[in-house]
Each structure stands twice: as structure tokens, then as C-alpha cells.
Design a binder for these strands. Structure first.
Lengths: 147, 147
DNA sequence: ATGGATGCAAACCATTTGCAGTGTA
DNA sequence: TACACTGCAAATGGTTTGCATCCAT
């Protein structure tokens, strides 16, 4: 995703109106590599767009996320979730209902350490995301109803 | 971590008082495999401990986390963070300042899919956590001061 | 023209905090 | 006994929502 024509085409293809605010938020985000929060984006944009509201930034990010133009850096649920197992293990997260299951797989415990200059790593965690059994079944029966 | 004597010993070893509330929260969490939220734990406990407050559950979980008896299931920062790169990639997260850096490493893109009955996975993400260059340096100079 | 988007302010929800009283060590 | 913990209620901070107005299509 790069220039304005491509952006315009992408929105059109999704049938979603492209407003000045949406363009501004997307271009600001795309220009940065620091994974800003909604607030940080609003802060950065308010000089050029004094009337842009924080609520619009939130709504815009949701829209951009829905049409697949931006990703959120993890945090699957809004509430913190806890685990009495402190040994290294990983998680399967249901993107529909928030269900979290433990994954124990030694092949995931020893991953190649990536290059990240200056970073001193103390560990890692792997999240597999998808639909849990119950939600996958719900989706199937919905499809059947809609058909 | 299992029986009450071991729990008691662990708290004593950390020099942290073991209250009824802390024991109750820990035992409830340890008995479950659904990664409950603070609220869910409070809900489950309030029949047996009607005076237990939600604030205490939050404080207790913080304490248990600090002494290494419980883990939080990721979500490194409280605010949502966004990324204009939607292609598969991974992240390095600084546990001290919240800095997030992109990691591009094809070896992390193709991981063995773990056994999770019924789950239909659509993808995965890997978080490496540790200290970024700046925070690692800050820790070093703090150590020097304290010495 | 018109349906969806914006902006404002209020609402919401998870989490934190101040403080008086209580319990653990 | 002393200090840390609890419980309550109020405060906080991020995010969402209702509604009147505005704008992209």
C-alpha cells in the first residue's frame, strides 16, 4: 500500500468512503515504524488537522483494520488474562470469543533469535489465532442459515 | 506450585505476607485452565469470600506476578498499538518502555502447527520480549549507581 | 440527494489509588 | 506492636457511543 491512487482504489474496492481524515490517519501510520497508539496518531495529526477528533481516529483505525489496511499489535482481549503456569508455554487464542488455550510444544520453545540490534531478549511467546471448536461450528451454522 | 505448604514457603521466601485473600486468589487461578480475568476470579470467589473486593484481586494478581507465581497472557501495553504493515511479521517488545520493533524473519513465519483439538488456526504471531538498547543501558547505569 | 462519516461530550469499562481500619508476622 | 494488606469509593485512562451536522459518492 503506497501512493494515493492505490489507497483510493483500495477503499473503492471495499465500498468504503475515503475521507480526508481516513487518508490522513493512514498516511501518518504508514509513515511511521513505531507502532503508535490512537492517541499518538491524534497528537501527531492535530497540528495539520486541528478539528480531527480522537474519536474519529479510533473509528478510523477500526475501519482500516476491518478492511485489512492496518494491523493491531496483539493484545487479543481488552481485559488482562492470567495464568498460574509460569513455565514456558504458548497460547491458542480464539479471535471470536476470546477463549485462550495452553499450547505445550517444545518446538516452539526454542526459536531462532531474530536480529534486533541492541535488544536483549529474555524470552518469547507465540500466539496462534483462529477459531475455537465452538466458534468454528457457530460460523458453519450461520453460513448454512444465510445460504 | 501445588500444596499450601509449598505456597506458604514460597511467600515466606519472598518476604511477602500470605493472607487468606492471596491464598484464595492463587488457588482459584491454579485450579483453572481458562486464563480468567481479575473480574472472573472475583466473581468465582465472592460466594466463598463475600467481603473480597475486586481491588484486592487486582492488587493480589500484581503481587503474585511480581514474585513470579502467575503470568499474564501477553498484552504488553495497556493501549492498543497499530501497524500499517499487514504482511506476516513479528515483534520485539521492550518490557520496560513499551517500544515495539518489527522483526522480519522467514524462519518465524513457518512454525510447526501445535496440537489444539478443534481449533482452526488462521495465523500466528511471535513476540520476543526483553530490553531495548536504551533501557538496557539505563539498567546498567542504575546498577552502577546502586553499587 | 443521501447514507455514511465526523466531532463533541457524555458514557463505559478495566484498572488504580487514597485512606481508614484490620490482620499477619 | 508495627507495618503491610484489605475494602470501599472515588479517580483515572483508554475506548466507545449518541446525536446533530457535514461531506463523499
Amino acid at each position: 500500500m503506497k501512493n494515493r491512487d492505490e489507497i483510493k482504489a483500495f477503499f473503492r474496492g471495499k465500498g468504503v468512503p475515503l475521507t480526508h481524515q481516513r487518508l490522513a490517519v493512514y498516511e501518518e501510520l504508514a509513515a511511521r515504524r513505531d507502532h503508535p497508539s490512537a492517541e499518538a496518531l491524534h497528537e501527531a495529526l492535530k497540528t495539520d488537522y486541528p478539528s480531527l477528533s480522537l474519536a474519529t481516529v479510533y473509528k478510523t483505525l477500526q475501519t482500516l483494520h476491518q478492511i485489512g489496511m492496518v494491523a493491531r499489535v496483539d493484545s487479543p482481549t481488552s481485559q488482562a488474562r492470567f495464568d498460574a503456569i509460569v513455565a514456558t508455554h504458548h497460547h491458542a487464542v480464539c479471535t471470536s470469543c476470546g477463549r485462550i488455550e495452553d499450547l505445550f510444544d517444545p518446538r516452539l520453545d526454542a526459536l531462532p533469535e531474530p536480529k534486533a540490534p541492541g535488544f536483549r531478549f529474555s524470552g518469547h511467546s507465540v500466539h496462534f489465532h483462529g477459531l475455537c471448536a465452538a466458534c468454528a461450528k457457530a460460523v458453519r451454522s450461520n453460513r448454512r442459515k444465510e445460504a
